[in-house]
Amino acid sequence: MAKLSLICPCYNEAENLSAFCEHIFVVFADIIKTYPQSAFECIFINDGSTDSTLSMLCALQNMKSDLQNNAFLLPPPPAECEIKIIDFSRNFGKESAIYAGLQASSGDCVALIDVDLQDPPSMLKDMFAKWHSKKADVIYARRISRTGEGFIRAKLSQCFYMLSNLISAVRLESGVRDFRLMDRQVVNALLKMSEYHRFSKAMFEWVGFKRVGLAYEYIPRTQGSSGWSFWKLFKYAIEGFVSFSTMPLRIAFVLGLVMSVLSLGYGCYAIISTLIFHNAVAGWTSLVAWIAFLGGVQLIILGIIGEYIARIYEQVKSRPIYIEKQPRDTKD
């Protein structure tokens, strides 16, 4: 008997939840036809949603015992599927939701998928089949085109992957999604990585294991809008650079060394020009510009060092990665 745990982070996904459940429950039924002894658990993480996402998830969970309680017209989960809900006390972000889902999972294999249906749930059948036949420990989805994305956003994404692979020993493949299925031993390895600042894309690569990729075309979002703004993507990129590479610190050292050598050379030139050739010191404008430039370089170097120190500071405080909100007891 094989059990599949499906982790579904949710942030204001009320418009997509019903369609997602309909698709994923059909996939579960298809898997059971091929592998009759299979069982499932859907772990929904409500990441501080402000819409009716939590109410819909609770209704879905209650349908296991009361099929009449279906005010949101949700499709009933199959008998082989257990519904679990993790309700965050606030919005902690997708990385925290993934970590919470991995902790709560109990399956022999664990899959991650977004609820917005931009990743095809039907691919889960092929992932499960490859895992069941022991062809791979990690089966991931890779989008082969960026059709539908803005030109600037697509180019910036390509630049991120190029720069990340240049400065980090962990190689990231462009187009790889969080949508994947992993063996239990892979999940256990990921849970041993207790970083407060988590960058799952690189963590999935860092742990290793045998991997297989499945390609698919871009699927537009049917409902709602993406919560990933340019600013959030920029912060996420910085997280990736700092979390899995010390190259920025080396670049800062080399940059400081080069500036010191250039400054020393310029100082020697000014002294020789004045004492030997009796040239008057001139160029106040260029001198001010040079001082301003050096000041900017120093601030950049301090900023790079500060990013690493800030992560050390937040890690040693040992704050929880997320806080789960428990339902209130309504009894007197």
Rank of each mutant, 00 (worst) to 15 (best):
Q103M: 15
A129H: 11
L124I: 05
M127T: 06
M123D: 04
L124S: 04
Y99N: 03
V110S: 09
D116K: 00
S105A: 14
D108F: 06
L112H: 10
M123Y: 15
D116R: 01
V115R: 07
L117Q: 06
D114T: 14
A104P: 15
D116L: 00
A97E: 05
S105M: 07
M123H: 13
L124Y: 01
G107F: 07
A104I: 02
V115N: 12
D126I: 04
S96M: 06
M127V: 06
W131H: 08
L112K: 09
P120R: 08
S122H: 12
Y99D: 02
A104V: 02
P121N: 12
L117F: 09
V110Y: 01
Y99W: 10
K130E: 08
L112G: 07
D126Q: 14
A97D: 03
D116S: 02
S105N: 10
W131I: 09
A129I: 11
M127K: 08
F128R: 04
C109M: 08
G101I: 03
S106P: 09
D119S: 05
I113E: 15
S96T: 13
M127E: 01
L124R: 07
D119W: 07
S106K: 12
I98D: 00
M123P: 00
A104C: 11
A104D: 12
D126L: 09
W131G: 07
L117D: 01
A129S: 14
A111P: 01
G107W: 09
L117E: 04
A97L: 02
P120T: 01
L112M: 12
D119H: 12
S106R: 14
A104Q: 13
A100E: 08
L117Y: 07
W131F: 14
V115Y: 07
A97K: 05
G101V: 02
L124T: 02
A100M: 07
P121R: 13
G101Q: 13
L112I: 14
P121L: 10
I113D: 13
P121G: 06
I98C: 00
S106G: 14
K130D: 11
D108I: 10
L112F: 09
S122E: 14
A129C: 13
Y99C: 01
S105C: 11
P120W: 10
K125M: 10
A111V: 00
L102Q: 10
L124P: 00
C109D: 01
S105R: 07
Y99E: 02
L102N: 00
P120K: 08
A129F: 12
S96P: 08
F128D: 01
S105E: 05
F128L: 02
D116C: 03
D116E: 07
I113T: 15
L124M: 15
D116W: 00
K125A: 08
D116F: 00
M123S: 05
A100K: 09
S96Q: 10
V110K: 05
W131S: 04
D116A: 00
W131D: 01
Q118F: 03
I113G: 11
M127L: 05
D119M: 06
G101K: 12
L124H: 03
K130M: 15
G107S: 08
Q118Y: 05
L102D: 02
M127N: 03
P121A: 11
G107M: 06
P120G: 03
I98E: 00
S105W: 09
L117S: 02
F128G: 00
A104W: 05
